[in-house]
Write a protein that binds this DNA or RNA. Structure first.
Length: 300
DNA sequence: CCTGCCTCCTGATGGC
DNA sequence: TGCCATCAGGAGGCAG
């Protein structure tokens, strides 16, 4: 559910409160929220207490906060992934526990004073970790919110997202040419293009009038360019509307829902009429999940 | 490298 | 009314 726009809303919400903040203490309520930190809760806590957060960065659906030890450079970062239902919420330090609260960071910011950052996650597919920062492969800044060419080692294999200025359309086109897999599968492959999940894959393919099971290598350059343009347009519009909320699982750092669900043309609209041609939207099982598309204007 | 399949997990929903 | 099955899907792992 949280895809690039939702994660970016969270990043942008955290950044002003976390940049320059010092981590005072940490409470781990549920160690399952540390599945990306195999050394466990005590190690996690020891590595971040007392550190200062340099910024809040994002690539695709991954977030990270580089940590600066007193007077030094950032060599490690808190990495977060929201999974299906994760939330990062800004609260007063004495706020009551959230329903699915897993981890709470107590921080002090020079201007905003003491705050709590709450990681809540109903389904526990999300998690936090402390990870080493390593150089990016191309020497460019690692992602949104990051001026440095340093990226958590856990995120190295994640491709740049299509809203990243260092994303290379040419490399993406070349990757598609070598793949016989369905284009939807490739859009969901975070090692090829990151940030796109099931909802925005369906929306982008609908907008580009491409059938989700078209072999990637069968797409013309014109079609690939159209698809990339639509991926970007869909992500940008969703970001401008604060993301897609179907239920209480996706909210911004203040607990508020986004509005993009009202703008969906394919996802979740099985049986409703296509806004472009008036034919019924179809839902099919695909890769153990659902694909929604218009069989009339998204021909194979 | 590629694909298909499976796993983690909780809560909402629908059929009976 | 309760009970059980199904579904939601991000990401990583594994077999072939």
């Amino acid at each position: 559910m949280p895809e690039l726009p939702e994660v970016e809303v969270v990043r942008a919400g955290l950044a002003p409160a976390m940049t320059g903040a010092r981590i005072l203490s940490v409470a781990v309520h549920d160690e399952r929220a540390l599945t990306r930190h195999p050394a466990g809760a005590a190690d996690f806590v020891a590595r971040i207490e007392g550190a200062e957060v340099a910024t809040v960065a994002r690539r695709g659906k991954f977030l990270w906060m580089p940590l600066v030890a007193a007077g030094g450079e950032a060599r490690s970062a808190i990495v977060g992934h929201l999974g299906m239902s994760g939330q990062l919420l800004l609260r007063r330090p004495d706020a009551a526990a959230e329903r699915h609260e897993r981890i709470r960071l107590y921080v002090e910011h020079p201007q905003h004073g003491e705050l709590a950052v709450v990681f809540a996650d109903q389904r526990t597919f999300g998690s936090l970790a402390v990870d080493a920062l390593v150089p990016t492969g191309d020497g460019r800044a690692a992602g949104w919110g990051s001026a440095e060419p340093l990226i958590p080692s856990q995120v190295v294999h994640i491709a740049r997202d299509p809203m990243d200025e260092a994303f290379q359309d040419r490399v993406f086109r070349a990757a598609l040419r070598t793949r016989s897999s369905a284009i939807k599968r490739v859009l969901l492959d975070q090692g090829v293009i990151s940030g796109v999940g099931n909802i925005y894959a369906d929306e982008s393919l609908w907008a580009a009038r491409i059938h989700p099971e078209t072999p990637a290598s069968a797409l013309s350059t014109v079609a690939v360019n159209r698809l990339l343009a639509e991926v970007r347009a869909v992500l940008e519009k969703a970001l401008a509307e604060g993301g897609t909320s179907f239920d209480a699982q996706y909210v911004n750092v203040n607990g508020q829902a986004g509005y993009f669900a009202h703008s969906l043309n394919a996802y979740g609209r099985e049986g409703e009429l296509c806004a472009r041609c008036g034919g019924p939207i179809r839902r099919e099982s695909f890769m153990n999940r659902s694909s929604h598309y218009c069989p009339r204007c998204q021909r194979r």
